[in-house]
Design a protein around this nucleic acid. Structure first.
Lengths: 213, 213
DNA sequence: GTCTATAATGAGATAGAC
DNA sequence: GTCTATCTCATTATAGAC
């Protein structure tokens, strides 16, 4: 019990395994698989290179674990929202604020997923079905919701795929291109953060204005 | 003269140097700097590995040449349009169709630029000024154009940075995430192409609808 | 479990023949 | 100019002491 209290005020002592996972997450995300160095992972974890191989057989194995985690972070939220029972407009609001919230915390998540999927597209199908993601269903539901809204003239005619692409693009791209945007628009970390915070509402209103009759 | 005619019907015989450049372009773009292999570049050019070093000192040098070319492809078009004397609406239409046209021809261009800039942000400034790109001016002009349109109530109040981000996002992101989108939406190369062709108009109208009072 | 030392390999770069 | 053979080095992976 005394220990518990001490641990609450101190930084919790993490196992080597946890330290490695955390470090690998950072390094793989920052550099991508090919440019990541086992040395850098070990260093950031504060342990020896050989220990990486003790816990995880090799680089590929480590990467697979990291990729799966990040893959979930990237897809599970949006999947849940798309499949929920919310109304179309509510869904759009939720997607926008959820995406921008998550990506504010993990700005380099989408670039990581995108580059690694591009370099090995099999992974998308492999991990997708491994964690029970069914794009067909997700999209079908969104699609019929859009069709219905069009039929009832609550929104103007628009193809649901284009609408979904618009929504996702406006949320995700600014983070994918963050280094470019920051430089071009001469923003520091803070002003970028503020712009994204404000963007949650701006993008939502932009979309609603675009699709409302 | 006879030779000329023959050459016109045959594939033009390209110099080793050109073959290497073409191949390097493909391989670096496909894999990124870190994962690109000199072996693969040589193979695709149909020549020997040593010859790469004869024409271009080393991997870094080769990459710099490729990167500069692709950097221009990515930025010069948009730069020219932003700085032109066109009206705001014309500008938006031009940006959208120009971007989608270029990226249809070079779908993996933005992913390449983005990953390589992310891994070495100095390059952005370095190459940017090397080819006389001045983001401040480009954005300032677009900004005042937006402000003016707002003042004259031709468009609703909107922050120009957000508007520009929306435009660029909707054009570029679908190509950045192409492998993901194709899989999720179960499209083949053709249907993706058709969707993008249609997108030129869809995105333009989406934006206009969103900003018109 | 964690380290040091070392092996094994992969990949970039150079030397030198033709 | 173009190739084969070789060198060098960085990096992953393993063996074995503690």
């Amino acid at each position: 019990m005394f220990n518990k209290i001490v641990n609450m005020s101190e930084a919790k002592p993490r196992s080597a395994e946890e330290l490695i996972i955390d470090s690998a997450m950072k390094v793989f995300t920052r550099r991508g698989f090919a440019a990541a160095r086992m040395e850098e992972i070990a260093k950031e974890a504060g342990i020896n290179r050989a220990l990486l191989h003790y816990y995880f057989r090799d680089k590929e194995t480590m990467f697979a674990i990291i990729f799966e985690t990040r893959f979930k972070e990237f897809f599970s939220g949006i999947g849940t929202i798309l499949q929920s029972e919310k109304s179309l407009f509510e869904k759009i609001r939720e997607i926008v604020s959820h995406e921008i919230n998550v990506l504010t915390l993990h700005p380099d998540l989408p670039r990581f997923i995108i580059t690694e999927v591009a370099s090995q597209p099999e992974r998308l199908i492999q991990y997708g079905q491994k964690m029970g993601i069914n794009p067909r269903m997700m999209l079908a539901q969104f699609n019929s919701q859009v069709e219905e809204a069009i039929a009832q003239q609550r929104i103007i005619p628009i193809e649901s795929r284009q609408l979904l692409m618009n929504i996702m693009s406006m949320c995700i791209y600014p983070f994918v291109a963050k280094p470019i945007i920051k430089t071009m628009m001469q923003m520091d970390e803070n002003s970028f953060g503020e712009l994204m915070e404000k963007r949650k509402n701006d993008v939502y209103e932009f979309i609603i204005k675009a699709i409302t009759p």
